[in-house]
Structures are given as C-alpha cells and as structure tokens.
C-alpha cells in the first residue's frame, strides 16, 4: 500500500459519496462524516440516437 493511502487512513476521513446511497448510509451509521452526491451514469443510447440528441440539445 502506498504511503499516500496509508496516510489517508491514519487521518480522520471526510467522505463525499457519489452515486449509490447505501454506501453513504453505511458510513453515517458508523459515525463517519459523509455527504451524499446524487449522481447516476448517463443512459446508454445507441450511437445514432446519441448523436441526434447531442445535435438537438
């Protein structure tokens, strides 16, 4: 494990969780300071459709 990572875990963690909320809730339950950022991956569209969408928006 790199020194950087080891250092990180020795410090008090402040976590920004992106996406699945279950990880955020789990951290909160363990008393870890965390915030939740709602995000989901963009939908996967067929290439032609995506190009047309990009053109129209």
């Amino acid at each position: 494990m790199s020194e950087k990572i080891k250092k990180l875990f020795r410090e008090e963690l402040k976590i920004a969780n992106i996406g699945l909320e279950i990880f955020y809730r789990s951290l909160k339950d363990q008393g870890v300071e965390a915030i939740q950022i709602n995000w989901q991956p963009p939908p996967s569209l067929e290439k032609g459709l995506k190009e047309k969408l990009d053109k129209l928006l």
Partner: peptide
C-alpha cells in the same frame, strides 16, 4: 424528453 434522454432522470 430530450433532457430525460440526456440525464437518465
């Protein structure tokens, strides 16, 4: 509908 497609929301 364009925004729904773009964001997935």
């Amino acid at each position: 509908i364009r925004k729904v497609l773009k964001t997935g929301i």
